[in-house]
């Protein structure tokens, strides 16, 4: 399995580009960090890869074919603010089961209690909600997960609880994962390689050919 961006470019407004000529690939079983300063376009790149935004140039391919997004998207994204990524007017049970009938075992592993399923999103804490957002992203069809600052708003124990389950499943099902994060310690702990988007954009002034060519981006050398 391979998630590949081929020479993509994107901008929200006409005539302005957030990034251009970006190519990168993530294989199954790989955990890749995507870093860069705030505002350099990490989240936008993540959204393009997951299909939330259409690239203006180039294309995003899954196993050599364009991702059709018919049915359950095999590229799933988990956002930083769980309270903003669920419908406040749906009971959490409906939200979670919207994509696939979430299996009990997964919920149990994430530490979700049966009683929470009937609550409204505003009756759950951020940590509890984020567990649901993780659960709905981890269907058997998921091949790639993009975690955009998934645990930034949570305390250390909740962070560790969620990562433990996610990393376990990623390994067990041989999924690929992209982590958008600023936390060097976390990246160092779990990632195989790092893409520093900012450095890539700056060094080559938007004329980057292939991120893959420098798999161990700048941040790795800083960490070691």
């Amino acid at each position: 399995m391979r998630l590949e961006a081929k020479n993509i470019g994107f901008g929200y407004h006409q005539n302005s580009w957030i990034f251009k000529h970006i190519s990168l690939a993530v294989e199954s079983g790989e955990i890749v960090a995507l870093t860069g300063n705030s505002g350099c376009g990490k989240t936008t790149l993540a959204k393009v890869l997951a299909g939330y935004e259409k690239p203006r140039e180039g294309r995003v391919e899954l196993n050599g074919k364009a991702n059709t997004f018919a049915g359950y998207n095999p590229v799933q994204m988990i956002f930083q603010h769980p309270e903003k990524s669920v419908n406040p007017r749906w009971r959490i049970r409906d939200t979670v089961n919207e994509g696939w009938p979430v299996d009990r075992e997964l919920l149990h592993r994430l530490g979700i209690e049966e009683a929470w399923m009937n609550r409204w999103p505003n009756e759950l804490s951020g940590g509890e909600l984020q567990r649901f957002c993780v659960a709905r992203a981890l269907s058997p069809n998921t091949q790639f997960i993009i975690a955009d600052e998934m645990t930034t708003m949570l305390d250390a124990i909740t962070q560790a609880q969620i990562w433990e389950v996610v990393l376990d499943l990623v390994k067990q099902r041989n999924m690929g994962m992209i982590i958008v994060s600023h936390e060097e310690k976390l990246i160092k702990r779990i990632c195989d390689r790092v893409i520093d988007l900012e450095a890539v954009l700056n060094n080559c002034e938007g004329e980057i050919k292939n991120l893959d060519l420098k798999p161990d981006g700048l941040l790795v050398s800083q960490l070691e």
Partner: peptide, 18 residues
């Protein structure tokens, strides 16, 4: 201590419960 041990630079292991 549990909070300390759960940091990614330490054990990265959570304690059970909420």
């Amino acid at each position: 201590r549990a909070l300390w041990m759960a940091l990614p630079e330490n054990d990265f292991k959570p304690i059970p419960g909420f």
